[in-house]
Design a protein around this nucleic acid. Structure first.
Lengths: 241, 241
DNA sequence: ACCCTTGTTCATCGACAGATGAATTTCGAA
DNA sequence: TTCGAAATTCATCTGTCGATGAACAAGGGT
């Protein structure tokens, strides 16, 4: 028995090689270390928030030494920003393209824009990434959802990275509803934005509330209901009195 | 100059009396200590979240010794729960009464319920407390907003304290829209809920986004737009195909 | 007048946080 | 071949965290 203990101890104390690791064969890519760290941080930040996570936990989940987080990202805050930044451009690029494609298709077909069409283009890429982009995207969406609710540095982060998509949405909806006042459009967007970010969180609250009747992870449902709800909302709010 | 320093030092080191404080004259109520702590905690938790606040910061803002937080609330988590609980019943009582009053008035007048009427009763007390209830209520609303976005213990907290109001809302909207399917109602509520909790946060994002055109603290605007937006949303989503 | 309860201050504990610097190893360019 | 840059481990520092226990003072019931 004591033998076993010694063996385990020795195994656990394995010299653990130091220094730069040997380059692996190109065949089996062992994934960039910095990406492993970002994945782990993304997961944990999205669940517990910035202050609820320690860099040691991130390092452990990433299977990496604590000092490496500082080597790659400087500070804990730097790591958070890197996580937030990594997918922002991809997601917003998708959304911008979807909106432009919808507008171009409508023009080409000689059909007028509709609020529902614009909103779907605005919203669909988000749910598509969340549902089919792998766990990383799901974590990222939850992170954005929480950051959006953060009163301090939530504001700046969202403003910097998400404003352009929002302005494009409003521009296109104005084309769909020419009589709309600017303030009406912003207020309507505000309501849509709340619904969208809540959905991105996927807290499971709707599922529980409805006794399983609604599944918040169901891509088609969440998209369809949001498009109809917000489409009608925009129309009602922007209608001339 | 050195004299000044010495004076300050002595003043700072003032023996600071120990033990139970003498009872103040009933005239000038010095506010219950536990309430001071709850106020401070409410403020800080709403800004930085649970893990972003230390009990020392709460104690300092409350002007109270750290040990007192443990004396009154046991653990840090106990303090948070106490903050959350304190105003939950008041707020939900107001909302429940408002919905019942609306329904009763409509019945008495022989008029049918409308989604807009129900939604206004559901939502108005919240904004009224936030706008006119003092800074504590504003902090509390922001706290609820953040808690609602929290994927871990946000769910349970909201479920425990807010479900009854939600079920009442859905019940009344079903009376207003008899053809509605249950799932439609829950999905519609989900969209309303996102808009409401985002508004409760008052992160100032809408103000910045609209270049000052919209003021998210403006009670009348936020209420009016939300009622019209969500009213139309409920109608659209629950309409028979 | 006595003493238990309540409310408060102070000192301190063990754990762990974020961060850093030195040593170590490999890669790749000159 | 040599050597600097890149990537990693380890040991450790300083500060702070949540929590506790003892001492102490006033109130209130008996």
């Amino acid at each position: 028995m004591s033998e076993t203990v010694v063996t385990l101890k020795t195994a656990a104390k394995a010299p653990a090689r130091r220094g730069r690791p040997p380059k692996a064969a190109a065949a089996e890519r062992p994934a960039e270390t910095s990406e492993l760290i970002l994945d782990a941080a993304e997961d944990l930040f999205s669940k517990h928030g910035f202050y609820g996570v320690t860099i040691r936990e991130v390092a452990r989940e990433a299977g990496v030494d604590t000092a490496l987080l500082h080597y790659y990202f400087g500070t804990k805050r730097g790591l958070f920003d890197a996580v937030f930044l990594r997918r922002a451009e991809v997601m917003n690029g998708d959304r911008m393209r979807a909106m432009n494609a919808y507008a171009a298709a409508a023009v080409a077909a000689g059909e007028p824009l509709t609020p529902e069409g614009v909103i779907e283009a605005f919203v669909k890429p988000v749910f598509e990434l969340s549902a089919k982009g792998g766990p990383g995207w799901k974590h990222y969406c939850a992170l954005v959802s929480q950051t959006n609710a953060n009163p301090l540095w939530g504001g700046e982060a969202m403003t910097r990275y998400f404003d352009p998509v929002v302005y494009r949405l409003i521009e296109l909806v104005r084309q769909a509803l020419p009589e709309a006042e600017p303030a009406d459009l912003f207020w309507a967007y505000h309501n849509l934005s709340g619904a969208l970010t809540l959905s991105m969180g996927e807290t499971g609250r709707l599922d529980r509330l409805s006794g399983g009747l609604c599944r918040s992870g169901d891509l088609d449902s969440v998209l369809s209901y949001m498009v109809r709800f917000a489409g009608a909302g925009f129309r009602a709010v922007c209608a001339k009195p």
